[in-house]
Nucleic acid binder design. Structure first.
Lengths: 103, 103
DNA sequence: TTGACACGTAAGCAATTGCTTACCAATATG
DNA sequence: CATATTGGTAAGCAATTGCTTACGTGTCAA
């Protein structure tokens, strides 16, 4: 459903920080921009990308636009990464190296 | 230690596919390029990025350059994503919505 | 030694990214 | 009402990305 790739969305550090900030609850653009002393348009554009990726939702309240975390799409990344879990376990890596016959 | 951001490295679908392919064991560039019918230089450049991110290692054998999966840096992504796990659980999301007072 | 193969990498180039400045609409405040 | 606040978004522009073509190096095979 999201029109933008999740991997692309979380590739930029600023967008990961935005997601982290939204864990404290929904916040207006102004507050987010001030927190990272980033400009408002830049913040707004990052939020637009996150919206396209389905990672946040927006809710208009008066003249403020409140953004809220909707991290469900992160599950896809989690699923993909999980398939590598066996690889970064030390015991599995040692075994694998042994089977591959590398010193 | 890696000179390139892991999030950046996995942002491109071709690079994720390369990692997936390397789960079957180390492989030379040619074989990887043929599998995705991508050009050899393009593949080589993607592998270079993965190398910079510490996600693969290379080993010269004769005239072939064998690339091997070293997915340890993925653990960083996994750690970050894990902190959102509570959010995409249905029960947690329902509770959170209730506490936030949304419909 | 000669030719083919495997690979890295530079150069060139179109497309994308990410910022800024500037402008507009909508809402709150006096 | 007039003015300030909040925010989206277009336009412009430098930097980056991702491909291709072209070239050089090292290795195997005849």
């Amino acid at each position: 459903m999201p029109s933008l790739d999740v991997y692309q969305a979380i590739a930029h550090p600023a967008r990961r920080e935005l997601l982290d900030a939204l864990r404290g609850g929904e916040q207006p653009v102004r507050m987010l921009a001030d927190r990272f002393d980033s400009s408002r348009p830049a913040t707004s554009q990052h939020l637009r990308l996150l919206l396209d990726a389905g990672l946040v939702s927006e809710r208009r309240v008066g003249r403020e636009n409140l953004y809220r975390l909707t991290p469900a799409p992160l599950a896809e990344v989690n699923t993909w990464i999980s398939t590598y879990e066996e690889f970064w376990s030390n015991r599995m890596r040692s075994l694998r190296d042994l089977l591959d016959g590398e010193e």
